[in-house]
Design a protein around this nucleic acid. Structure first.
Lengths: 184, 184
DNA sequence: TTGGAAAGATAACAATTGTTAAGAAAAGCA
DNA sequence: TGCTTTTCTTAACAATTGTTATCTTTCCAA
């Protein structure tokens, strides 16, 4: 989605000059927090290289909801859209290069490219739908089933993401994941 | 939300005459299914009297997501809005009197009362936000914690809804709920 | 009113996960 | 390279929940 926007801007003379002011490129190390749970989200991030995760705190432990990789847009959407405290933290799990887009600039861009507006609404819709499915799987399926699903449908996550984050994604302890892995 | 719409219509001369054609009142017995998982939702329901629940199937067992009571609007929203197969079933758990509003009439009403449109969008937003919180609690909290929360914040549910549905809402077996109850 | 179905409680056992702890392997950094 | 930290595995025990089965109570409809 943002990739489309970025292309659009780069081919727009007026905006191209300011591109680097609007999309701020930053290099962050592993374990850098971009947004803390409880803060209000002011940016959308676009991952040029690396990997982020979205998680929230439960009694001192973290529960991971989603992983994001190259060419994906990341934000704590609910917070970004409605200025509410974010329910989630966004953090890097690899050295990562991101493009940050500030809320204000985002609003300006939507005004300047009004034909992106509908697309954005549509994308928000789909994102919500995705979240519903994600949550549903979390309720419906056992950790074992969800791990099998990861192997089948998202082997790249298994390969790239440290196991304790995967355990956190599955909602179990690393110890329990270790057991599941050696059960097969 | 629908209650506002209903009021609005009743004070509108042109529409008042057709009210009973638009909002079809139906009396259903307990355990009547209004919408099956997999079907496309064509109606929003408004509960005049009684109680509905929203659930989905997991390996032959049902998992309840939400209960609805008097004066609440109920729909499988994702399906209703985007014509996708419903992820949920809607079923009565008491003899219930509902007002059914068909999708087409709903669209017509929004056109006839355009000032309701923004409010509707806003409500959709809040509904999504609610769902997020609901799902989150389901992931974050133990059945024990969620049961305590029910007692504290929704005693009417405890009183009114049969225990095996509450167990299904908590995501556990009736047996396990029975144990939790006798643990305190 | 009464008989069958539904709802709820209890028990015994199995399966899964969490917790604590300790050690091995791998990765990262000076 | 060598040292420290992080990551992963394994073990033993506790806690929780699921499963199967039985029994009691409640509810509803013929």
């Amino acid at each position: 989605m943002l990739d489309l926007l970025i292309e659009k801007i780069k081919t727009d003379k007026e905006y191209d000059d300011n591109f680097q002011k609007i999309f701020v490129e930053t290099e962050i190390t592993s374990k850098t927090t971009l947004l803390n749970e409880g803060e209000i989200a002011n940016h959308i991030y676009f991952i040029k290289k690396g990997c982020l995760r979205l998680w929230f705190n439960k009694d001192g432990k973290d529960i991971t909801l989603q992983f994001f990789f190259e060419n994906q847009a990341v934000a704590s959407i609910d917070s970004f859209l409605s200025d509410k405290p974010s329910m989630f933290t966004i953090e890097s799990i690899e050295p990562t290069i991101i493009l940050s887009l500030h809320k204000d600039n985002f609003a300006r861009l939507l005004q300047h490219f009004p034909d992106l507006k509908d697309g954005f609404q549509e994308i928000m819709y789909r994102r919500f739908s995705n979240y519903a499915a994600l949550f549903l799987s979390r309720i419906k399926d056992t950790p074992q089933e969800r791990y099998n699903d990861l192997i089948l449908n998202h082997p790249e996550i298994i390969k790239r993401v440290p196991q304790h984050y995967i355990a956190s994604y599955l909602g179990i302890t690393p110890i329990s994941l270790s057991r599941i892995r050696n059960r097969r």
